[in-house]
């Protein structure tokens, strides 16, 4: 059952989550986002994981009208295929670059080598972009590696850290506090505000991790 909640007077959060992450739902979220983004009365939309935040100007637009529109667009949205690219991410695993590898291995009841192999074997999909500039929430993490996030976040996780947390995989586009676990490090530049397309990854992209040689 899809719920629409207020997010202030000029925001609405459509929450379509129903238990586990649903890929079809996510494709409908993206379709809804794309359709709304071309409208003049929408300021921006932020696709989350099986949810969508919609922002508009409450001076110009009545929230009740916007709520009706959002429900209509969502109801009619189809889970269409969007073009997807495959991005390969080279990773240096373990050691000083992956200080939580041992902890994750213990949680999964695997050796560190097996843990790396499980992470490398995954085919991940960019479900949402956010928190910090260029951070991607990747679905497709092997459930054995679904370690809960740290109880208290580290105050500093380095740019390029390859991380997992709360059932998702990700990479740090900048140095920032984070409660996710660190498996390794990549040199890929995930976000540069001065590039024509600042973010390296787009919604729907497939991500594959490989060991850096």
């Amino acid at each position: 059952m899809t719920r629409i909640h207020m997010a202030g007077a000029g925001g609405l959060l459509l929450d379509a989550a129903d238990g586990a992450f649903n890929d079809m739902t996510q494709r409908r979220i993206w379709a809804t986002s794309r359709e709304l983004n071309v409208r003049a009365d929408i300021v921006q939309t932020i696709p989350g994981v099986n949810n969508l935040l919609v922002m508009f100007d409450a001076v110009e637009t009545d929230p009740a009208t916007m709520e009706t529109l959002l429900r209509d667009v969502w109801t009619q949205a189809s889970a269409d295929e969007i073009p997807t690219r495959e991005i390969v991410v080279p990773v240096i695993y373990g050691g000083t670059f992956g200080e939580d590898l041992a902890l994750v291995a213990r949680f999964a009841n695997l050796t560190e080598e097996e843990t790396i192999e499980v992470h490398v074997a995954g085919r991940y999909s960019v479900a949402a972009i956010g928190a910090m500039a260029g951070f991607v929430y990747l679905t497709g993490l092997d459930s054995r590696l679904a370690v809960p996030r740290r109880d208290s976040p580290r105050l500093r996780v380095e740019k390029g850290a390859v991380v997992i947390g709360g059932g998702h995989a990700g990479m740090m586009p900048c140095t920032s506090p984070s409660g996710w676990h660190i498996l390794g490090r990549t040199d890929l530049c995930l976000f540069d505000a001065f590039r024509p397309e600042p973010g390296l990854l787009r919604l729907g992209d497939t991500v594959r991790f490989v060991r850096a040689s």
């Binding site: 949810n51 928190a131 910090m132």
Partner: peptide, 29 residues
């Protein structure tokens, strides 16, 4: 909860039960 978009003004309640109000430079999700 799955990660979701948040706006400035959002009053979040982490497990400790003390609220945090998101301001202009808040994380987007």
């Amino acid at each position: 909860l799955f990660s979701h978009g948040i706006l400035p003004g959002t009053v979040q309640v982490p497990p400790a039960g003390q609220p945090i109000i998101q301001m202009m430079d808040a994380n987007t999700c």
